[in-house]
Design a protein around this nucleic acid. Structure first.
Lengths: 196, 196
DNA sequence: AACAAATAATTAAATGACCATTTAATTTTA
DNA sequence: TAAAATTAAATGGTCATTTAATTATTTGTT
């Protein structure tokens, strides 16, 4: 009486394989065969479980979003002050579980593909709105002036995105701890400046 | 004795068409036929002029880089102080000629495709190094401390990249003037903070 | 100007890969 | 033995690229 069926195992394996294959081959070169081969299966079985390639890609993106969401909630649970919650948002974005070389590649590729795929676009918007709303809520208690607050939020959000791009681009191994440090330093500078 | 041959006209037309088609269809959906149709030609003629699809894409990226380079030199020619030169770098990145909705889409797509295409990757590295070196040179005169200077440069460069992503992502029309304002405001905050 | 070559531009159609998806089994598991 | 998992092979479609012509444009010559 196992709670884990083969179906669930394969789902998880194939999504992991998709992340890796996307990182290795890139969005517009990756094939179902390559993804399947990653776990010693065939393209037909991918179809058996996910129906279409698009559905597999959407499931993969949902998987990444779930990781982010999980890290976020974990950080929030510990945070006691608005500033601690802000740090938790940053820590979640650059958590060891999320900010890996492979996943940087994959996020950037989803960003560039999303405008042209209905399903991905929807997910993308949900995620972006979630992060914006999270940061906005934290900042509301730290910066009363709305214009200044929105500036800081916008700068931080663009900055975070940019770090992902640069990491995917450079080919250097992702350094989550360093990214957290830099991001918090940047946030410090912005907040000190606004309150001055 | 025209200096402009048909060959040059077609080159320019096809590259313009490629930018537009990439924006409309996305990197991994765009076909040579669609690009060609944009100027009322056929796929075969694209091959006649560019040899392969990859070469066309590289030529298109070189075109975008030339625009950036041109704007940059124009701004530099006017600048008299280090700070003015820095502002010129920002103004070039968000110039009306460069920071359009279409070109935002295209840059983001090149970023995501570059790691998987030798030719694009080379161009990407050249461009990134150029921008980094430009900003670094300006900042050297404003921030003596190397660590602080590198932090500011890194933050600004990630921020700039992030703004491109967000513009491509949101679907909103690109607003170059606003982007320039925000970027200069961000730079102001960072510099004031570092010198305090 | 006129007029042939010669050269450049253009394309319709053919070619050959590649790949997602389907089908029709076969094997494995429950 | 029924249901689930798996796959080899078939299908059909899409494309980049090539080929073999045809049509425009230059160029050189008288």
């Amino acid at each position: 009486m196992k709670p884990v069926r083969i179906r669930d195992i394969r789902h998880a394996e194939l999504i992991e394989a998709t992340v890796f294959a996307l990182h290795k081959q890139g969005f517009h070169k990756v094939t179902l065969s390559q993804i399947a081969k990653e776990i010693g299966a065939t393209a037909a079985s991918v179809n058996y479980y996910f129906g279409t390639k698009d559905h597999l890609l959407e499931a993969t993106m949902r998987h990444l979003m779930r990781i982010l969401q999980g890290e976020m909630q974990q950080g929030y649970a510990q945070a006691r002050t608005p500033r601690q919650r802000l740090d938790a948002v940053i820590a979640a974005n650059f958590s060891d579980a999320l900010f890996t070389t492979e996943q940087c590649s994959v996020w950037v590729q989803f960003w560039s593909a999303a405008p042209y795929a209905e399903g991905l676009s929807r997910l993308q918007n949900i995620n972006r709105a979630r992060v914006a709303s999270n940061m906005g809520a934290c900042l509301r208690e730290l910066i009363p002036d709305e214009a200044a607050r929105e500036t800081v939020r916008g700068v931080m959000q663009s900055y975070l995105d940019g770090v992902w791009i640069e990491t995917a681009q450079s080919g250097r191994k992702a350094n989550a701890a360093l990214a957290r440090n830099d991001a918090i330093m940047t946030l410090d500078m912005l907040l000190r400046q606004v309150n001055a």
